[in-house]
């Protein structure tokens, strides 16, 4: 499903990668360990994390992830936003904790597959 649909459904605040909100989201991955996401995330995944430093952009870019959702209203570092803008990686902020974000995204994707 399109990333923009998830952004609307979850009222996410977009801070970078605004030109790529039509990215296709095919799955999701939750994790704060970068090598875990590198090893187990899949291209097209929406990455849900608590990490806010700029290295998350490189991971998302190298893995062709659909975007990054930061949980608990965590603000990304300024250089994270700059890097996200430069690389065209959508970084979004949710007020919800990771468990709730993951549950909602999971249901949206599942529903989308059935339709």
């Amino acid at each position: 499903m399109e990333l923009s649909s998830i952004i609307n459904a979850l009222s996410l605040r977009v801070v970078s990668g605004k030109d790529n909100l039509s990215n296709a989201v095919t799955g999701g991955y939750v994790g704060d360990l970068l090598s875990d996401v590198m090893g187990n995330g899949k291209s097209g995944d929406l990455w849900i994390t608590r990490q806010v430093h700029q290295n998350i952009v490189a991971v998302a870019s190298l893995k062709d992830l659909a975007g990054i959702v930061l949980v608990n209203n965590c603000e990304p570092a300024e250089d994270t936003i700059q890097k996200g803008v430069k690389e065209g990686i959508p970084i979004m902020i949710s007020e919800m904790p990771g468990f709730d974000v993951a549950g909602k995204v999971y249901n949206l994707i599942k529903k989308d597959h059935h339709e």
């Binding site: 704060d32 360990l33 970068l34 090598s35 875990d36 590198m38 090893g39 990490q51 430093h53 290295n55």
Partner: peptide, 16 residues
């Protein structure tokens, strides 16, 4: 603290 150093890097390299 940055989410590195989880002891997975070399395993990833081997697997990939």
């Amino acid at each position: 603290e940055m989410g590195f150093g989880a002891g997975m890097g070399l395993c990833n390299i081997k697997n990939y």
